[in-house]
Design a binder for these strands. Structure first.
Lengths: 130, 130
DNA sequence: ACTATAAACAGTAACAATTACTATTACTAC
DNA sequence: GTAGTAATAGTAATTGTTACTGTTTATAGT
């Protein structure tokens, strides 16, 4: 009677696309990726499923400051950097600073669930040029 | 001959508004604030001046992940938290982790200029309710 | 102080990312 | 297999932001 989440080819394809890349595509980039598999998929479907996958914790959303959301097939908590040169988001594989969460909670009285870190700068390739 | 930045009442008013609040208003909220002083100021003027003030380092832009930019009259590097309950941005006054920048630079080979941290959770008020 | 110059402006139109809507399709419990 | 209802495709609407245009105004040079 009461139906839970229902399977859909589209959602599986979106999740696969995200899990099989190390890049951090925007919704539109995901749209382009899955259209190779499902040519008539709707952009609205991509947005809706990305939101659902974020909500259930299967992927994460990254705010890089370039005016659009980026998505990341989630494995473990990790940090990101945004390159001012090529405007790309990449992983930064340093340890998650769990101590900052407790410090922030103590300072503010808030309940901290997690934190995001975005490093700003010029990536290895772009710093040569500029 | 070559003109530099020129004074404007509007820009001064915008900077004042940001420096005299501890909140982290969006462009639209800034617009509402300065309209009390300059009723016919244009929203475009607010956006342009906010961008210029960010560029010259007088204020900072915060990406909270709620679909719009927030602005902050800048004093020193500090962190922020976004409350899932009341959707507000507040300061977190813990020390800037400069060590993370060098760690990130070493790990990635990038040139790191700085980093932003946004804590996610429920603020002191909202955690009581929920 | 007066004038020429161009930066900054107000007002509005355009834009791009995202969300909402609607009729149709296709999972899944029975 | 069928009924019920999530999920979809396609499209329209919304929202935050940026670009454009004719006008105003700060300021450098007289």
């Amino acid at each position: 009677m009461i139906q839970k989440r229902r399977y859909s080819k589209q959602r599986e394809c979106i999740l696969n696309a995200l899990q099989s890349t190390k890049s951090h595509p925007s919704a539109n980039m995901v749209y382009d990726m899955v259209r190779q598999e499902i040519p008539n998929i709707s952009l609205g479907t991509v947005y809706r499923n990305l939101a659902e996958l974020v909500e259930e914790g299967a992927i994460i959303k990254i705010d890089a400051g370039d005016g659009m959301e980026h998505y990341d097939g989630y494995n473990k908590p990790h940090y990101h950097m945004f390159c001012r040169g090529c405007k790309s988001v990449s992983d930064i594989e340093i340890e998650y600073h769990a101590g900052m969460d407790t410090a922030a909670a103590k300072e503010s009285g808030a309940e901290i669930e997690y934190h995001n870190v975005v490093f700003m700068g010029m990536c290895r390739n772009c710093k040569k040029i500029n």
